[in-house]
């Protein structure tokens, strides 16, 4: 019986949705930012896979159908973006200024910390694209000679972390404008941050979607310049 539950192709998707429900319930009951539904879901699935002795490949036979929806969902971000286009027209200077400042701060920060830890060039360029969406980040890392598997891992951890800490960061740094919050989430935590921005509101969501696109393009350029620095 146990074998049946772990062998069915539906296991991966089923356990993921179940874990997400657990995450939603935990957030509802324990109103703490650390109880982030996505983080809890990932940890629950990892635990369940270990307890039931399911390896990742088997889990992903069902899980891949959730990942499959990522491209249509990203394309769908055009809808909130279109509905908030007037905000972009009105604030385009703040949008471009904020995103480019963030991209430069990120690249500069990674450079400074890599130097501090005495990292090799290969490790340094692996971290450079960590704040942008996985598909672009993997390409950038590969082109600069980084380790793509580690880049992907860092991008995912960055996204989940950004999703978890966003409200705390906004509180500490007094960021209350919805436009600024959205840009900050999309620029630092790409699509996973955008999922959080959508929860905060439609303006936040639209600006976060915009930041994914603009930051992606800017990082491609910034990373290739910064790559020569170490």
């Amino acid at each position: 019986m146990n074998d049946f539950w772990t062998n069915t192709v539906f296991f991966g998707a089923l356990i993921s949705l179940l874990a997400y429900e657990v995450g939603l319930l935990a957030r509802k009951k324990l109103k703490l930012a650390l109880f982030n539904p996505l983080l809890i879901a990932v940890l629950c699935v990892m635990a369940a896979n270990r307890v039931l002795g399911v390896d990742y490949e088997h889990y992903n036979r069902g899980g891949q159908y959730l990942s499959y929806l990522m491209t249509p969902a990203t394309v769908a971000l055009a809808v909130p973006l279109y509905e908030q286009l007037h905000l972009l027209k009105k604030n385009w200077k703040a949008v471009l200024g904020g995103i480019s400042a963030g991209v430069l701060a990120g690249a500069g920060g990674i450079w400074a910390l890599s130097k501090l830890f005495g990292l090799q060039h290969e490790q340094y360029v692996t971290f450079l694209p960590k704040s942008i969406t996985t598909a672009i980040g993997m390409d950038v890392s590969a082109q600069l000679g980084g380790v793509v598997a580690i880049t992907t891992a860092t991008i995912i951890i960055t996204g989940i972390l950004g999703n978890v800490i966003a409200e705390g960061v906004f509180y500490v740094f007094k960021i209350h404008e919805p436009v600024a919050r959205g840009l900050a989430l999309g620029n630092s935590a790409h699509a996973i941050g955008t999922a959080k921005a959508m929860e905060l509101g439609p303006v936040e969501g639209a600006m976060s979607s915009l930041a994914i696109v603009v930051a992606g393009v800017m990082t491609v350029v910034a990373a290739s310049v910064f790559a020569h620095a170490l």
Binding site: Y59, L66, M70, T134, A191, T194
Partner: peptide
């Protein structure tokens, strides 16, 4: 959308 990032 958040659910889609669980496998990753």
């Amino acid at each position: 959308m958040p659910v889609m990032f669980i496998p990753a």
